[in-house]
Amino acid sequence: MNGTGPAGNGFEQRLGRLLIVVTYAAVALLAIGVVLLLLAGISPLSGGPPLDPARLVSDLLALDPAGFLWLGILVVIATPLSRVIGAAAGFIGRGERLMAVVSLAILGVIAISVVTALATG
């Protein structure tokens, strides 16, 4: 049976809260980007700029909609990853070796996705 005693519940509750908080942070960033997009009068179908990590901070400081939208998208993708990282830490702390290995393997698959896309893109 899976761990649903108080310790298990607290662990899952923390993971749930983490997911909610990071999701709302991502939605807030996207919402700011959309408002800036509307204020700038840019047509969304005109084609947005590609992701350039080097420009992200300067775009944010300049209140460029692309900066907020890209950061929001990156936080969206990072949201489920943060849950897996949190779960991995929790499983390691609770001595659940098998689930810790599963968590780390999931992160490994995501890393392979990134590397493969970069290599073949």
Partner: peptide, 14 residues
């Protein structure tokens, strides 16, 4: 990474 996510479309839709 392959450039198929447009931030200007993704923001309002998401």
């Amino acid at each position: 990474i392959r450039g198929e996510v447009d931030p200007y479309v993704t923001g309002p839709v998401a």
